[in-house]
Nucleic acid binder design. Sequence first.
DNA 1: CGGGACACGTGACGC
DNA 2: TGCGTCACGTGTCCC
Lengths: 233, 233
Amino acid sequence: MLWMENVGDEYKNYLQTPYFLENQEYSWTIDGYYDSSSPEGAPSSAASKNIVSERNRRKQLNQRLFALRAVVPNITKMDKASIIKDAIDYIQQLQEELAKTQTEIMEMESNNPETEEQPPPPPPLLLGTHNANVFNSTTSSPIQLLQLKVMPMGDNTLLVSLTCTKRAGAMVRLCQLFESFNLKIITANITALPGTLLNTLFIEADEKEKDGLKMQIETAIATLMDPQSPMMS
Amino acid sequence: MLWMENVGDEYKNYLQTPYFLENQEYSWTIDGYYDSSSPEGAPSSAASKNIVSERNRRKQLNQRLFALRAVVPNITKMDKASIIKDAIDYIQQLQEELAKTQTEIMEMESNNPETEEQPPPPPPLLLGTHNANVFNSTTSSPIQLLQLKVMPMGDNTLLVSLTCTKRAGAMVRLCQLFESFNLKIITANITALPGTLLNTLFIEADEKEKDGLKMQIETAIATLMDPQSPMMS
DNA sequence: CGGGACACGTGACGC
DNA sequence: TGCGTCACGTGTCCC
């Protein structure tokens, strides 16, 4: 009865299509010959133009999406959302790793010209988990979100207050998260107690931004945290 | 002609929507009061269930997508496809960078026991001006040390108190630094004020370790900071 | 047979 | 005025 436009549906093999995803730049005119669908003479110009446009947009977005999958090493589920999530984890992991090795280099440099024995594994500093390769990683230390409040305060300020379990790297990732936002931080405070991590910050944001900012922060934190946290849905 | 379901369309503000993404649990049924009527002919059970499901799926996917945007530093366009593309580029940059620094470390290690200047293959490395790449957004900000005290407190604790200028990434690097030590942190606190960064931590260390630890911390911080800081000499 | 994941067409909105 | 982007509802597929 309905449809016939399953023309584009022959690839249902779960995103695992002969897309020949090229890494960069898209030539990308797979079935580019125009629609061939303007059966009814009438609506072709107005509607059908949008249709093909939208079709291309979707296609390009999919290309990009699993071009992303291509650069992330340890993909498990081919699910769209999972691809993005894995990419996020991988990026954070890379950032962490990179910063670690850089500080390591600085130390070695500073200690280099002087005497100071320097066996292959550098000084007692730096816990050894950075080893050889990038991703044997079970590095995902699940942080559990215990409490999160993002509340507008009037006077163009936004108050963020969060509590989470203290894990290795938690503080780093928290700082990275907030620095990545590029927001005007009036005051930020992180306190590490034996078991938990307290975080309070005041952000400058006019009335227009507040809602968007609030949601942005909340979702970003949601993805950073362990999905099994009591706070999570 | 255009019937209802524009209920969910009032927010078109570019991904910046009052999603009220579940702060915590969401009952969250916009038109969800279940079909009071679903004798049979009603599309409610069959269709409406799929509708809400699909709606959630889209929502979650968007959350993830700009959680991705949150971890990528140099986003320009808020476009969906652009977000993914930027993420891909960023990942490749990170991978490249990481590989570079790691090989450098290995070289420094191998050249360690004997002096032998050997930086031909890789440039001298200074974090910051990494070649070619557009993103010095991470790193490259000289932090100035304003004040540093490392004092034994008795009762097997060591007090570290430092003040430095606030730069991009300063907080992250500070956290990383301290996490890289394998020390028993009793309490840590970082406060970011408009211009400066305050850091206080209590560390558990018995009498034997204190002196070594003190030096270790001081030198590590010294290398992290800008050599032109007033504190440095 | 339900539920998850997907592509599709469509109206709306902003430039 | 089009063009690009988006969210939505819907049908299909597969487990």
